[in-house]
């Protein structure tokens, strides 16, 4: 399981540089669904540091970080119920 977690995280970070933006989005979702994945939040921060310009996006908000934090914590009750 750790190998899967590492693999998805690596794919997400590579995709942040090379591939379409929805691949890191899917990786954040996948990591959050199964793990209490701090790397999902790190991936969101990385996307925003890399691509967010002042005034870009929705009033310059770091959407990927916000999304990652919300998704990771929103799935917490689901993870506790199904995985504990």
């Amino acid at each position: 399981m750790n190998a899967l977690r590492i693999a998805v995280a690596v794919i997400g970070f590579i995709a942040a540089i090379f591939w379409t933006w929805y691949i890191p989005l899917i990786c954040i979702l996948a990591l959050s669904l199964r793990f209490r994945a701090w790397e999902a939040i790190a991936l969101g921060v990385f996307m925003d540091l890399l691509w967010l310009a002042p005034g870009a996006g929705f009033h310059g908000l770091p959407l990927f970080t916000i999304f990652a934090v919300l998704v990771v914590w929103a799935f917490e009750p689901l993870r506790k119920e199904l995985l504990s």
Binding site: A15, T20, W21, A53, F64
Partner: peptide, 11 residues
């Protein structure tokens, strides 16, 4: 010097 498609913000 970067990918055009990777940015979700059009940058």
């Amino acid at each position: 010097i970067s990918s055009i498609i990777s940015s979700p913000y059009g940058t």
